[in-house]
């Protein structure tokens, strides 16, 4: 882990300064202050970069979680659909059979609609308009 602080820089500074002994003391102090300032800015930049990295990682995690959740939901839905298809027979949509008329009614309506003439319709009504008592 890379930790930069002013104490380390201060400790390294005399060594470097020691190598350039010809430089005057005031100039050395100015150089040290400038380096500290630069290091502080670098530190700030690094910290900011770390923050954005961690935030990006968190964002990425949320997206992953939402993706996983979506996948799981899709799998759950498809399993449910398969089960209801098995229960309801051939129908693809499990709700499609609830409001459809019975085949007998469809046949009766088709027979009724197939006859155009009013007289023939009356005949059919008379034929079917009987009551059965057991």
């Amino acid at each position: 882990m890379q930790i930069n602080n002013s104490a380390n820089l201060a400790a390294q500074a005399p060594i470097r300064l020691g190598n350039t002994s010809a430089v005057p003391a005031q100039e050395q102090r100015q150089n040290v202050a400038a380096r500290e300032k630069l290091n502080n800015e670098e530190n700030k930049a690094q910290n900011a970069q770390a923050d954005t990295n961690s935030r990006q990682r968190l964002d990425f995690d949320e997206q992953a979680i939402s993706l996983i959740e979506r996948d799981q939901l899709a799998q759950f839905d498809s399993r449910n659909a398969e089960q209801s298809n098995q229960q309801n027979g051939q129908s693809n949509n499990p709700n499609s059979g609830y409001d459809s008329p019975s085949s007998q009614n469809q046949l009766a309506v088709a027979a009724y609609q197939s006859v155009g003439a009013i007289a023939q319709r009356d005949d059919i009504q008379q034929i079917f308009g009987v009551d059965l008592f057991a």
Binding site: Q126, G129, V130, D131, L132, F133, A134
Partner: peptide, 19 residues
Amino acid sequence: GAGLCTTRGGSAFFISLMG
């Protein structure tokens, strides 16, 4: 012993009751 009566018209209530 079963039976069936087919009718047209009349009162369904009384027809059912009077079997």
